[in-house]
Amino acid sequence: MADHKFLVVDDSLTMRRIVVNALKTLGYEQVVEAQDGKDAVAKLMTESPTFVITDWNMPEMNGLDLTKWIRANGQFESIPILMITTRGNKDDVIEAMKARVNNYIVKPFTPQGLKEKIDQILKTTEAKA
């Protein structure tokens, strides 16, 4: 648990704070933040996170484009990505899954929901590794 370093990407300061707090409550102390996809790309290079939690709607580079960028980049392509967004339409979820996010949470999230998704993702990705 303590080995994972999370990158939380959201243009809303409020949401970043809430997600970071929730992660810390779950025992994940290593967390870095980015305010949009472009900033996240820079943090991926410098901070070497092992798990990305991203919003969808953001300026500069949105969460979907960030996901596509990560999956197209050999260095980072296997990083687990959890999308947390207000976009709850089925078409949106399908588009995100096609872009290869590992799981999807519709805001508002609950700490229990966040824990379940992180556990599911880690279980699957660690089994593959």
């Binding site: 959201d10 809303s12 409020t14 949401m15 704070r17 809430i18 707090n21 929730a22 409550t25 207000t86 805001k107 508002p108 999230f109 609950t110 700490p111």
Partner: peptide
């Protein structure tokens, strides 16, 4: 924690 989680309403209303 529940109060903090409820504050997601700020992002959604914005």
């Amino acid at each position: 924690m529940s109060i903090a989680i409820s504050l997601q309403v700020q992002d959604i209303t914005s």
